[in-house]
Amino acid sequence: MGVLAEFFDLIVFAVLFLLGFFVGRWNERRHYASLRRREGEFGDILVFSNRFPPAAAGRLDTALVSGSAVISEDYFKGLVAGLYSLIGGRVRSYESLIDRARREAVLRMKSEARARGAGMIINVKFQTFAIGGRNPNSVKGVELLAYGTALSARAQAGAAAAAPG
């Protein structure tokens, strides 16, 4: 019986490992393709970490905009990260995870800015939050929050701001 139980454990591990590796990788590729496509679409919205608006911008309307995304790790990424925590070094499986979450958050922030008719976001701040932390039983994922101030030309001042060019 004991051998059978161990064999069963091994099968469960193999299924999780293969699911994590193949479906996880497929998910990541699909997400990256979607990110690249949408980053092209939102390329006209400029994002700066400057604290102050450009001096020549004239009178502007400001609005706080934000975007966030929680991206889950997969079984394979978790396993690889666990191994790297023993030997140290660069954990690429988590680097891509955080990269995806951050780019997704920026895109959502940009889409909020576009909905408000803004062409520029300044004073952008990022915040990273690990869901689950060190608890081994918890769901593992990372939240990236991006927020900043969207600037749009005031309706009545729009013509005046454009004229001096």
Binding site: G20, S68, A69, V70, S72, G141
Partner: peptide, 26 residues
């Protein structure tokens, strides 16, 4: 929702329920 998220933890992807929860909290 945590149960669903732990399934997502196997194959990866966005945890929409968590994104929404944190957004609502904010």
């Amino acid at each position: 929702k945590d149960l669903f998220a732990s399934l997502k933890n196997i194959v990866g992807g966005e945890l929409k329920a968590y994104t929404e929860l944190l957004q609502e909290s904010r």
